[in-house]
Each structure stands twice: as C-alpha cells, then as structure tokens.
Design a protein around this nucleic acid. Structure first.
Lengths: 204, 204
DNA sequence: TGCTGGAATGACCGGGCGGTCAGTTTTGTA
DNA sequence: TACAAAACTGACCGCCCGGTCATTCCAGCA
C-alpha cells in the first residue's frame, strides 16, 4: 500500500467515523436541533476536527444522508430481483424495509429527518437513487402486466414510499401504542391494500 | 355591546391577525426558520406586541396550527355526510382536500410543517380532531360493509392521510414538474388505487 | 383641552451556535 | 533522539434569535 493510499484510507475512516457519530446524534436530537458540538462529542473528537474533514455543517449532513441511504439501498436492493412474482417481491421489499428500521431504530429519526429534505434544491443523490430504483421496479411490473397499465411508475413509487414511510413512523412512534404489530403483519396489510385496494366484496 | 365584550373582540381580532401573519411567514420560510421578527413584520406590529398576545413562540405556533386545521376541517367536513356511496364520498373528500391547498398554496408549507409535529408530546388538538374524523368516516364504511372488514379504521385513516399528504406535496413542489394534473385526475387516481388496488386483471 | 391607563414599541440582554485559527500534540523520518 | 510536518484542539469571535421592559403613544373621558 503506497503512502498516498494509506493516507486516503485513514482519512476516509475518520470521515466515516464522524458520519456515524452524526447519525447517532441526529437520531437522538433530530436534524434541526443537532449541533456540531454534539456530533464531535459523539465522535470523541474536538469540534475543530470536524471541520478538518467537512467544509461546513451542510456538507456533513449531506454526506451523512448519502451514507444512510447507501445502507438502506444495500438492504432492500435484493428484493427487486428476488425470485417469485410481483406480489411476493413487493411484500419482501416492504418487509425488508420495516426490518431495517426495527434493527436500526436509533437511525429512523435521522433518516426521516433527512428524507424530508428532498424538496431542498440540493437534492440528495441517494434519495434520488432510492426513488429511481422504486420507479424501475414498478415500471417493470407495469411492463410485465402485473400492474394496471394506467398508472405511472413514478407515481406508484411515490405512493409506495408515502405508505411505507407512514407505517415506519407509526411503528416507531412511542406515543402511538395502537397497531403495534409484527413486521410481517404490517407488511402484509400494506401490500394487500396496495394490491387489492380497500373495497369489500371482490376478494378473488 | 358592553365595554368588556368590545375589548375581548378587539383582542381576538389582534390575535387572529398575528396568527394569519404567522401562517404567511411560515409558508414563506418554513416553521423551523421563521422568527418572531418575521411574523411581527408580516403582521405590521413590533416584536414586543406579539408577546402581548402570546406567551411565547411555542404557544403562537400551536394556536396557529389549530387555526389552520380548523379551516381545513371546515372545508372537508361536508364530504363525510355527502350524498352518494362510500366511493363517491371518498373521491369528494380527496378532491376537496386537494382544492383547498390549490386555493391556499401559500399555506401548504405551513400546514405540512405543522402536520409533521404530530409526534410532538404536546399533540395538536386539531390534528387529533382531523384524524378522528377520518377514523370515524372509515369506521362507518367498514360497519356498512363498504370496506374490507379486516382493516382497522385507525390504520385506514393513517394510510389515507399518508397518501393524500404525498399527493399534495407533489402537486405543490415546484421542483417536480412531473405528474402535474388537474385535481380531479389526481383525486381519481388516488381513490382508484385505494379502492381497487394496483393489481392488473380484475377491473370489474 | 388636559389627563390617564392600558396598549404598543423596539433597544437591549443573555445564551447558543457555526466557524476560525493560533497553539499543542502526535506521527513519521533521518 | 531530534526535528519537521501534519493532525488535532478548544478558546474565541461574530451573529442571530427569543424574550424583557422602560418608555412612548393614544383612545376615551371629564
């Protein structure tokens, strides 16, 4: 390993440590309230050190969001090409996503907070990639005739995302003790609504 | 009109003016960024005057949220007992809600921002009332056999709210030029997904 | 017109945070 | 071991904002 490469590896390691600390701190205090000092404390470094690796608060938060969504995407990507029909894949996708946040409860506030920044002009690269994957998934399903042809894949992706986000928020909100189910049950309920609708009478 | 009553009327008028100004200011800058000075400027009064009518920033924002949801509820309440079957009422509800925010574009950011505070311990009275109305609407539909009996009304209300919120956000987000439809089209699409699901093949 | 009490004002205060940088410590090299 | 460069530190600065309060303004009354 050359000297140059070694330096880069160390630098990347430090950067990743600070991003991890940022996730924890954001999970604890929320993205608006978290301070650079919080993140530095969590990472066990001085505030100035943060500015060695990141230009400013904005860059740090953007990089942290990217890291978080990279993790999420790595987790759910296998669902898109899993064996089975569209319904099975969709159920697997929803389940994996719910389990991811059950597993990383501490990160949900961070993800949600960062998620909602998508209307920001400086859109996150990874949020766009996440939406793109969903859009392709639904687009393929439309092409294969698994989904009604009158629905736009982008809109389908958006509706799915709205619903799964809501379920995750409800699952993790300590205030609402109602509807606290197994992830399998929640995933099944959501997918059955999306696939068959809520109307009574035509359970084929 | 007695002297006492007159004073109360004037006081309530001033309070309402400041709340209206708060809505405008929040719509422009977002709820986290808006300052008391912004609101005072918008209302055309001095900063100190705001504190004559509201104890602190928190109370002002809470009262503003209540006012906003009172308006929204007044707008959509007729849909719950409109003539026609469940599907017609649901479509009417979605349409009224979309039109409300088309009409009051400037307020959507305020409502969304305040909406998302619902996980706050000090839950807004009006957000709870809004959700309660939805829950009753879907509960009645389940009782009358219009909706699958395996679905919890509270969850139905939550899913509907997640979806309609997403549609509103997409309609009003200047970044996403995609899927800019008439309110009727968007309402119809959403309701058709909720009622019939997205699955192909069983368009009865 | 002069008086008065409550409403309105905005300069000011205290605290907190993002960002800087001169000084200190660590690390790698000769 | 000696030294230089790089990494790290945290006290400090400037700015902003929520909230206060002594002062000013003015509507209503005698």
């Amino acid at each position: 390993m050359s000297r140059k490469t070694k330096e880069l590896v160390v630098e990347e390691f430090r950067r990743a440590s600070i991003e991890d600390a940022a996730m924890q701190a954001i999970a604890r205090k929320g993205i608006e309230e978290v301070t650079i000092q919080d993140i530095a404390d969590e990472a066990g470094v001085a505030k100035g050190t943060v500015y060695v690796y990141f230009r400013d608060r904005e860059e740090l938060l953007a990089r942290t969001a990217d890291r978080l969504f990279d993790n999420l995407i790595a987790e759910i990507e296998p669902s898109f090409c899993a064996p089975g029909g569209f319904g099975v894949r969709l159920r697997g996708l929803a389940l994996r996503q719910l389990l991811f946040f059950d597993e990383h409860k501490a990160l949900f506030r961070a993800t949600m907070a960062l998620w909602q920044r998508e209307s920001d002009p400086r859109k996150s690269r990874c949020v766009a990639r996440y939406l793109g994957l969903l859009e392709k998934f639904f687009g393929d399903a439309v092409a294969k005739g698994d989904v009604r042809p009158d629905l736009d894949p982008f809109m389908l992706a958006a509706v799915y995302r709205d619903c799964i986000r809501g379920v995750i928020l409800r699952r993790l909100d300590p205030n609402s003790q109602r509807l606290r189910n197994d992830a399998e049950v929640d995933a099944e309920l959501l997918v059955s609504i999306l696939l068959r609708g809520i109307q009574a009478g035509d359970q084929s």
